[in-house]
Amino acid sequence: MDATTRSRALLLAPALFILTVAASGPLLIVFVYSFLTPGDYGGVVWDFSTQAWFNVIAERDFFTEELGWADAHLAVFWRSIKLSLLTALLSFLVGFPTAYFIATRPRRSRDMWMLLIMIPFWTNLLIRTFAIMELIRNEGTINTVLIAMGLVTAPVQMLYTEFSLLVGMTYVYLPLMILPIYASMERFDFRLVEAGYDLYASRWQVLRRIIFPLVKPGVIAGSILVFVPCLGAYVTPRVLGGGKQIMLGNLIELQFGQLRNWPLGAALSLTLLVIVMVALLIYVRAAGGEEARHG
């Protein structure tokens, strides 16, 4: 090992230390806990058991001892994945035009637009979530206006529905979609758009065949950045779902809290991690394939 390599290793050391201690350590603890027996008042008893992993997807009926699917868990998994995908989709539908708009402004005003996008992002998550709640609750702004305009007679139930979660999470994570798409679009050579029009491509064809393929890496990155935190979202479903529409994050919290089943909580956490890993793998495949084709 020569001097350069040694000093490089030294530079790496703090990061390695933090990653090992702060990530691998707790992860290892979670892994070990998932194979233990729950204690009566929380915590774990050091008896090896695969019960928790079994309970992630299946359960034995309390009275008949009949084996069945853990419907409650599966419903939460399904809702989490579905809402996360929908949030990513909705964020894309809102974020793509926004990023396009900003990227086509004069250079000087782009930073101002990005700042406007980022300001809500820097605001406390709870405050933003309560703001959404204020808008959509039955006595909230939207319903008040709708009733005043005579469009509806009774308030439209939006709060505590999957809709409210979708709106809330899209609002929260939208900047994470806009940023990478904007970064891709800023590098996009808009002269190619003129070349497309010149070669008989309509607006839609230019968007689909020229702009979209070239900013796709940004779209994929944005989708992952939105999808992953949505899967584990806790605050938004807690406030806007009102305990009715719980997601994975809330289910995990329940196991460690009220239900005092730490091993199951640990197993659910690791399941969430696996789902995230699979999503990242798909991303790496998609992005890697892109790069290989464009050199």
Partner: peptide, 28 residues
């Protein structure tokens, strides 16, 4: 422009970087 039977050779060439040479030529 896409309804005019007129084509342009741009100063910057403006070739589509995500397409092969043949795909570029066939685009129109």
């Amino acid at each position: 422009p896409y309804e005019r039977p007129v084509n342009t050779v741009f100063q910057s060439y403006a070739l589509f970087p995500h397409m092969s040479v043949a795909e570029n030529v066939g685009f129109g």
